[in-house]
């Protein structure tokens, strides 16, 4: 899979403060890429460099293999976290203006806006002023404006903030559809559940450094601890527990079950496999529940950040 965007050893300093310290990321074409990190980690600095709002002090950013240039603006759609629209301008006029700034002709922009406005059932907003709309309504316009020029690369900074659950879902579906149509999406968010749901690649930036990146499944594999969640019924659960304690690292687990089982998390020691554990367990009692514990993005996030502090 080729990359649509590559950042190589990007450094950005504001006076004495280093916002990005040799950060490299590689965004595969057609992926949904989660750019994660605590507040103030440097995500927005990186996004601003990709959007050519600021320039890196050193390092390089390639879009589709070419160093970033002015004309790439039309290939990128950006919805910043701090977002707004001209309050006293009419919706339609404003959308046309912003689309033209992205290089669309007026005619083309009008036709595409018609399509999107019908899709979102907001055609009757055309002549309203932004200040007459609610925040969620304005966000919809913002989304339309971001994707209107059909950019290869879409960058969303906290896209769901300000949306109610129904519209958030709507936007999520639109993003997935855009991905299916060939766009690549970079996502910057704190909401781990949406990362879990949408992203196939992630990069974690912490204190100006990239501390983790890769395909989400690879990352998870890397972070799994060979732990299994087990529900087992034996004649004497207490005796079974002490037996397990001798052989494995065991902690209490909590999950829903209709059986009166012993519920534990069991971490394998070096050399043991899941099969070894399972055959041991089946010899001691009735195994009703056996699941590998896969770390959530949230766990990985917190763990990585704490390790790096």
């Amino acid at each position: 899979m080729s990359s649509i965007l590559q950042a190589k050893d990007v450094v950005k300093k504001y006076g004495d403060y280093t916002a990005l310290n040799n950060v490299s990321i590689d965004v595969p074409k057609g992926s949904i890429f989660g750019l994660l990190g605590p507040n103030g980690a440097g995500k927005t600095s990186l996004i601003r460099i990709i959007n050519q709002i600021t320039a890196p002090d050193s390092g390089q950013v390639l879009l589709d293999g070419e160093p970033l240039q002015q004309f790439h603006i039309k290939d990128i759609g950006y919805m910043p976290e701090e977002r707004g629209l001209y309050k006293s301008m009419k919706v339609g006029e404003q959308a046309l203006y912003l689309a033209q700034l992205k290089g669309l002709s007026k005619k083309e922009a009008r036709a595409r806006l018609k399509y999107w406005f019908e899709k979102f059932e907001i055609s009757d907003w055309w002549n309203k002023k932004i200040q007459e709309l609610s925040k969620g309504m304005a966000q919809k316009i913002q989304f339309v404006v971001t994707v209107l020029h059909q950019p290869k690369l879409l960058i969303f900074d906290e896209p769901f903030s300000g949306f109610d659950p129904i519209n958030a879902n709507r936007i999520k579906d639109e993003i997935l559809q855009l991905r299916d149509e060939g766009a690549t999406v970079i996502f910057s968010t704190h909401r781990m559940e949406s990362v879990e749901e949408l992203c196939d690649h992630i990069a974690l930036i912490h204190k100006s450094n990239k501390v983790l990146d890769g395909k989400l499944t690879d990352v998870k594999r890397q972070y799994k601890s060979n732990t299994y969640q087990v529900g087992i019924g034996a004649a004497d659960n207490l005796q079974l527990r002490s037996m397990l304690n001798e052989k494995f690292d065991v902690t209490d687990a909590d999950f829903k079950s209709i059986n009166d089982d012993l519920k534990v998390n069991i971490q394998l020691k070096n050399g043991d496999t899941a099969n070894d554990l399972l055959s041991f367990l089946t010899s001691k009692g009735q195994v009703n529940h056996f699941v590998e514990v896969i770390p959530s993005v949230n766990d990985i996030f917190i763990q990585t950040v704490e390790n790096n502090n």
Binding site: N51, I73, Y78, L85, Y86, Q142
Partner: peptide
């Protein structure tokens, strides 16, 4: 100042110099 108070500044500035 208008762009700043309306918070549209990042959108504009990512399109024009």
């Amino acid at each position: 100042i208008e762009e700043k108070t309306n918070r549209i500044i990042e959108i504009i500035i990512s399109s024009v110099k």
